[in-house]
Design a protein around this nucleic acid. Structure first.
Lengths: 338, 338
DNA sequence: CTGAAAGCGCTTACAG
DNA sequence: CTGAAAGCGCTTACAG
């Protein structure tokens, strides 16, 4: 292994000078720097990350905690968030560590205590999430990608699911719809208090109430892609509904086939709106008017916030809910009010 | 931050003794060890991972390199592999670093050079994968989760796609089928030489030839879940085929709806077999006779192999292709030979 | 503008 | 069975 010592010797300077060149200090003359760079090049030197980390007390790595599963089934969008977070971290010069463990609160605690990471992003946040306690205890810089009812002074960045619900309801209301079906996640997701599910539903119900829209909620049995069953059930139970709001990635993906099978034409027979991760919408050509969650942007902002927090542990905490755009595709029909 | 010094002072012993206790050396008397443990407990000590890494020249972390995408669309199973790899690594006491970068060969090189990780797992391996060169150059311990045509003396662990193809063909042949449709990944996937796609197809074609089964291959336009289009096209083009082999996760997921829409009954009108990640099969209740790839087992074995390699860089390299079981669900009809 | 030196928090022969 | 000491490869005041 070639170290700074070797480079220093080769270039005829001291270790300190090499170090300054590596970190790009302007104090070093260009002439010396060139000499050092030549030596590094020649020897194939690369700074030892561990040694630097020990010296600076910074690992330049963040952790990301995710369960990967919701309700026992592999989450369709977990990978997307991971990817976007890792990419954003890299832009800041940080590596991303996958913090996967049985007991994720414990995982956070030990990662923090052993100083393996400088900060942590929490995904799939629930209300009363035990991981929040672990963060507070260990004092590790953290950002919740999710907005629990009580974030306990931990930074929050997330999509604005409240606004999303409001804008979808407004769109249906303005188009004259007065009776809608809500297709949700499995009940267990709400029971676990997963914040995005709970927040969207709550806001949706309130918006419908305010708009005097009648809602029937139907929940998927499980998180499967063949979720057409729930849609079928919904339409049977509520034949008078003129519109459907879907918040369930798998059901959104399965919906076009379900409609086709049942001979339901969108929007002639039924108007449909949804909320989905943008990547899902693109890749799968979701044909519904929908709020598109820009995962890359949300992840990016989350990492930005974490880096800021690492840099300034005492700054006041913030809650950022990012509005997501409504994408109109012609799946909502304007009803004649009569 | 509480260090070994603090613990040593508190317990009235030397740093060395504390270190031995932490690492569980049997040389320390139980009495002393108890004293030290009490001090650690009292002060809330936890070993500083970075310092240990510098001292031992081991990071206890592995990297995993994945593109997350195949053909521009988010891979349905990427997350599954990541999750299983991270879990397996954890069992060995290793952390998992997400190595995501534009130029993944370069990413590997720099991670290796800066000694951030002890070894690396490569996913989505292609024939002539440039990352293999980066591995050889940097000399970092590595395992390919995938089996390229030339693995250049790098360890390989993967599902046995050859055997999978053979067993699916045998099953169709024994059931009397003589003309089958093959639904593959988009052509771009084969063009990129993604090893699992290429290997499965090649083995399939050979097995069909040997069994005197006629094959028509149809490729998806893109990797979308609404891949029913390709199935529809296939059935139109080859109405005489009695069976279908699908190797394309998205198409497998979309197939039941596609059949339903087209009024095709399985297995009465058409026999169907597939190969899918087990997690997909479970979660999505794929109703087809299929080879189920046990991702967890493959990932686990991959990590085992990597840890062995890290422990013994000079051991001979191996290629492990793991047979996957055929799962019969009644989607193949026995034809009367006549 | 550059170098000598201390220090980051561990581990590990080695001596006792 | 335990401790003093060197060393891992960096960074960073500090002195010059």
């Amino acid at each position: 292994m070639v170290t700074m010592r070797d480079v220093a010797r080769e270039a005829g300077v001291s270790k300190a000078t090499v170090s300054y060149v590596v970190s790009g200090s302007p104090l070093i003359s260009e002439k010396t720097a060139a000499k050092v760079r030549a030596a590094m090049e020649k020897l194939g030197y690369s700074v030892n990350h561990t040694a630097r980390a020990l010296s600076t007390a910074k690992t330049n790595a963040i952790g990301v905690v995710t369960s990967f599963f919701n309700d026992g089934c592999f989450s369709l969008s977990a990978g997307t968030y991971l990817y976007s977070i890792a990419a954003a971290a890299r832009r800041h010069g940080y590596d991303t560590m996958l913090l996967t463990g049985e007991d994720s609160a414990e995982t956070i605690r030990s990662a923090a205590l052993s100083r393996r990471i400088d900060g942590v992003v929490i995904l799939d946040v629930c209300n009363d999430d035990p991981r929040i306690g672990a963060i507070k205890e260990s004092g590790i810089p953290a950002v919740l990608l999710g907005s629990p009812s009580d974030s306990q002074e931990v930074d929050v960045v997330d999509s604005n699911f409240e606004q999303a619900a409001v804008s979808l309801v407004a769109w249906l209301r303005d188009s004259g719809h007065r009776s809608v079906l809500f297709i949700g996640w499995p009940e267990s997701v709400y029971a676990r208090n997963l914040n995005y599910a709970v927040r969207f539903r709550k806001s949706l119900m309130e918006a419908c109430e305010a708009a005097r829209i009648q809602v029937s909620a139907i929940y998927a049995h499980d998180v499967t892609l063949g979720a057409s069953e729930v849609i079928q059930r919904a339409l049977r139970d509520c034949p008078f509904a003129t519109a459907m709001i879907i918040h369930n990635d798998a059901a959104v993906v399965g919906a076009p086939q379900a409609f086709e099978r049942m001979g339901v034409h969108v929007p002639e027979d039924l108007s449909v709106v949804t909320i989905v991760p943008e990547q899902l919408g693109e890749g799968m050509q979701i044909p519904f008017d929908s709020v598109r969650v820009d995962v890359d942007m949300v992840a990016s902002r989350t990492v930005d916030r974490l880096i800021e927090r690492i840099g300034n542990p005492d700054a006041p905490t913030t809650v950022e809910l990012l509005d997501q755009p409504l994408n109109i595709q012609g799946s909502v029909r304007a009803l004649h009010v009569g």
